[in-house]
């Protein structure tokens, strides 16, 4: 059992708070951008979530109070930011300086400042895990860790549910990109500003994280090192021609220890990578056992929280 502090109270942070008890953990602090709720003896999580739903803030304490709370594991679930990856990076640094563990749902620190995070971790008794940053509930990083990243030659997959939903609908309905995107926005599958998903940035961040893991410290990647192309230039006619030939187009991300590449690719209909709708899939290519296919839900509050709490369970005791 661990004492958890959750920073960031979006869909993922709220689900972590909601499901922590089910995993046998106590939530001792929750912070959003407005305030915080802190109780070293364990918060009444339902009350915290009800208050968040009612007035948009989790509590009256200052957000910084959550970072100072007596937790074992800090769950960093603030929105992903690029460049300096703040404020997420500072939250990670603070927890590690206190010799506490960190579990990231925020991709920023491990996509943009992987070397810095690893350096701080090396100087701390705490560890950093980030399963939730790649493929939601799918145990991609856990699988790579089990085999050893040095025995994984590549990872590739469909890592953005919004882009995959759009491509799936375009192929099924013979509609063009703009029509399907509008539909996806109405359904809540795509955000009002979908560029992060449809331009390939989100998938690229996940692949950058994979490449950082596969490089085993030999090389550090950031988003700038990735070759990225989105799906906005894929017309319905291209999907029609692919379908005539038993194929389809998927936004595929590829990561090795040397390269990160994201772009629309032709895959056979029968390929494990030809997943439908918002599902994600990752193929892990092993040195001695060919490919391992992992698929499942790559986004969503409870799905991502499931990966976060799996990480919390993997962490060693601190004392």
């Amino acid at each position: 059992m661990s004492r958890i502090a959750v920073v960031g109270c979006g869909a993922v942070g709220r689900s972590v708070v909601d499901l922590a008890g089910d995993h046998g953990h106590d939530v001792v602090a929750v912070a959003d951008s407005q305030g915080a709720a802190v109780d070293p003896a364990g918060l009444e999580t339902r009350a915290v979530l009800e208050r968040k739903a009612a007035d948009g803030a989790v509590g009256d304490a200052a957000p910084a109070d959550a970072l100072a709370a007596p937790y074992d594991v800090l769950v960093e679930a603030t929105p992903t930011t690029l460049g300096d990856a703040e404020p997420g990076f500072s939250h990670v640094a603070r927890a590690l300086s206190r010799d506490r563990h960190v579990v990231l749902a925020n991709k920023g620190p491990v996509a943009e400042r992987y070397g810095d995070v690893r350096e701080l971790e090396a100087a701390s008794r705490g560890s950093v895990l980030f399963e939730a940053t790649v493929g939601g509930a799918i145990p991609v990083l856990g699988t790579i860790d089990d085999y050893g990243p040095e025995r994984i030659t590549a990872a590739r997959g469909v890592l953005n549910g919004t882009a995959n939903f759009v491509l799936t609908r375009m192929a099924a309905e013979g509609l063009d990109y703009e029509h399907v995107l509008a539909e996806a926005q109405d359904m809540g599958v795509a955000e009002a500003d979908p560029s992060f998903d449809v331009e390939g940035t989100d998938a690229a961040l996940k692949c950058v994280i994979l490449a950082n893991v596969l490089a085993c410290g030999e090389r550090e990647f950031t988003l700038d090192d990735a070759t990225v192309e989105g799906i906005t230039r894929v017309p319905g006619s291209a999907l029609d021609l692919a379908a005539e030939d038993g194929r389809t187009v998927r936004l595929v991300g590829e990561a090795t220890a040397d390269e990160v590449r994201v772009g629309p690719r032709l895959v056979p209909d029968t390929s494990p990578l030809a997943v439908s709708g918002t599902r994600n899939v990752v193929q892990v290519e092993t040195a001695h056992a060919d490919g391992i296919d992992l698929s499942g839900r790559g986004a969503g509050g409870p799905e991502t929280a499931t990966a976060v709490l799996a990480d919390v369970g993997r962490l060693p005791p601190l004392d």
Binding site: A154, R156, R233, V234, A238, R247, V249, V252, G263, P264, R265, L266, V267, S271, L273, Q283, E285, D290, G291
Partner: peptide, 12 residues
């Protein structure tokens, strides 16, 4: 022009 390339998949 925009080329959509095939994916060389994991050998199996």
């Amino acid at each position: 022009l925009h080329a959509i390339e095939p994916l060389t998949e994991v050998s199996r």
